[in-house]
């Protein structure tokens, strides 16, 4: 474990003006890293919450600042919004006398595969992977984001390991649609892992409705939605279905954040 007492870490999340749980995982990872004492300071910043990207650098005492996006994929936010709002012009930028080092987002780290496997095993204990169809569910729209690409990449990696009967990428808003999970899969057991950075409207409500394990309840984008994870397994459409929390709630994300800092240093060396 490296130690950077003279550096600050800023973890950037999306945040939400509607969902009180959206920023929770980002704060949790920050708390875990602060407890490790790996950095002199650890901060969070958000697009939709405060501290905002326009405020956070005023809160940092250190002159060297690593910024790690807590995002699933490279895309609009990591390539356009975060650099623009922080005033970055490349991997390393001098911003008002500070050196800001912009790292890759957590979701692009190869360790994501292990975290998905861990999450899938935890949600369906004792279930034979060979008799299981594993779904990695992304958003999949024209959001100028590469979340669908990231989900496909993880599916290919997990598929190559030969652990599961089948591994399938599916999406909320583009084909293959997660709503057709029973047509897309053949195994008796189905494990569904949302490939999102936080639990919220999508994991609490949208995907459960598409899966057929919950009915629409407008405005339920809150902790009350967490009940959907407590009712595993679901028996429907002739299968046994296990529904997991969003992958971003996995504790191992804190280590991935540190790995992305180490990767930045390695690339710069």
């Amino acid at each position: 474990m490296f130690s950077k007492p003279d550096s600050a870490l800023v973890i950037v999340g999306h945040g939400s003006t509607l969902n009180p749980d959206s920023s929770g995982p980002t704060w949790g990872h920050a708390d875990a890293i602060a407890q490790l004492g790996a950095f002199g300071e650890v901060h969070c910043a958000f697009w939709k919450e405060e501290p905002s990207l326009r405020q956070v650098l005023h809160c940092v005492n250190k002159r060297e600042i690593y910024v790690v996006p807590n995002f699933i994929s490279e895309g609009y936010f990591t390539q356009t919004v975060i650099p623009r709002e922080l005033g970055l012009d490349g991997p390393q930028t001098n911003v008002a006398g500070r050196t800001v080092k912009y790292c890759a987002p957590v979701g692009s780290h190869e360790r994501m595969t292990d975290l998905l496997l861990k999450r899938a095993a935890a949600v369906a204990p004792g279930v034979s992977p060979k008799e299981t169809s594993l779904f990695i569910v992304g958003h999949g729209t024209g959001l100028n984001d590469n979340s669908a690409v990231a989900a496909k990449r993880e599916v290919e990696r997990i598929r190559a390991l030969g652990i599961f009967g089948e591994v399938i990428a599916a999406y909320m808003e583009e084909a293959p649609f997660i709503a057709k999970w029973d047509e897309l899969s053949t195994q008796p057991n189905v494990v569904v892992v949302p490939f999102f950075i936080a639990d919220g409207l999508h994991s609490y409500e949208d995907i459960p409705v598409l899966l057929g394990i919950a009915s629409t309840s407008p405005g339920a984008a809150s902790a009350t939605g967490a009940g959907v994870f407590a009712q595993n397994p679901y028996r429907l459409r002739g299968r046994t279905l296990f529904y997991a929390n969003s992958i971003g709630t996995e504790e191992g994300f804190a280590e991935v954040i540190l790995d992305q800092v180490a990767a930045f240093d390695a690339a710069a060396a």
Binding site: E49, E50, P51, S52, Q55, V56, H58, C59, V60
Partner: peptide
């Protein structure tokens, strides 16, 4: 910082 994020630093 939790009650009023960034307000000390700003």
């Amino acid at each position: 910082d939790a009650f009023y994020p960034a307000m000390i630093g700003v």
